[in-house]
Computed example of a mutant assay.
Amino acid sequence: MTDTPPERRRRAPAMDAEQRREMIVRAAMPLVVEHGGGVTTRQIARAAGIGEGTIFRVFADKDAVLDACVGEALRPGPVLDRIAAIPLALPLPDRLVEAAAALRAHLDRLGALLGALHATGGRARIGRQARTGAAPDRAAGTLPVRLALAELFEPERELLRLSPDRLAALFLGLLFAGAADAADAADAADAADAADERPLSSAELVDVLLHGALTDPATPAAPATPATPEGRS
């Protein structure tokens, strides 16, 4: 009886430079959230399971790694994938609640990373990226999100008072009201707490969007009181 030779250990396939960059950024992002700009390349290398020198084969320095993490956090691809996966067979309110949850999770991740960098002196990082062309254009990033949201309204197009695109823009406006800059999201939350205001849940936001501000849409709103002309009591 012949012994079966032991199976040779297979080596992991070699990565190209872009794959290695992506792997390093994925490993670095949770560390940046935890340590901000104080994260070290040794910590990143340990998390990625590589030698520290490997980082510098694809990144010029630690700042380049941090810039890549910001660019990845701003990239809309993951949230677009989540919105595209929402079944159109679901009722419209359920579709929109899922979309709101996906967008809020995206904003939370972005805010956590930028907040950590801001707390450790990285406030100007997005500005530097914008000047060098390394940061994604915000308007360009918002457009595909709006188009993806508009697709969620399409099955009910004949029942809508506004076009799917305009409703998608309104939805985004409601969702991100008070958070014009994601880097200031934590400050905005603190301000809301100070004013004893609870942020709307995703379900509440969708309900207001679809049904308006009145508890009974069939009840007409009271007419606005006409302004008194200047000079008259």
Rank of each mutant, 00 (worst) to 15 (best):
V39C: 02
G53C: 05
V32H: 02
A85G: 10
A139I: 12
A183V: 07
A140N: 07
R138F: 13
A102G: 13
A47L: 05
A192P: 07
E52Y: 04
P30I: 07
A191M: 13
G212K: 09
L149C: 01
E22K: 11
A150W: 04
P144M: 00
R125M: 14
F153I: 02
Q19A: 14
A85R: 09
A119M: 08
D184M: 15
R75L: 10
A12V: 10
S163N: 01
G51V: 06
A177I: 07
F56I: 09
R166W: 08
L66P: 04
G71K: 08
E34L: 11
A84P: 04
P5T: 00
A185Y: 08
D108Q: 12
A124T: 04
A148V: 00
P93L: 09
Q43E: 15
E156V: 01
A101M: 11
R57S: 11
P155T: 01
L113T: 08
V97I: 14
A119E: 14
V33T: 10
V206P: 14
Q129R: 03
P76E: 06
A99Q: 08
P93G: 14
L117P: 02
A213F: 15
L172W: 07
R10L: 12
A100M: 08
A224R: 15
E151G: 15
R20M: 14
L66F: 04
R131K: 06
E72M: 10
G231T: 11
G36K: 08
A192F: 08
A224T: 14
F153H: 11
L205Y: 03
T40L: 09
V206L: 13
A134G: 08
A194Q: 09
D184R: 15
P5N: 01
S202P: 13
P78F: 11
D63C: 00
L160I: 03
A112Y: 03
R46V: 13
F176P: 00
A183P: 07
E156F: 01
A186Q: 13
L209Q: 09
A112P: 03
D3Y: 08
Q129S: 10
G51L: 03
L143F: 06
T228N: 03
A186L: 12
S201Y: 04
R95G: 03
R104L: 08
R109P: 00
E151K: 13
D94T: 13
P91K: 09
R166N: 11
A84K: 07
P229R: 05
P13D: 00
G133A: 04
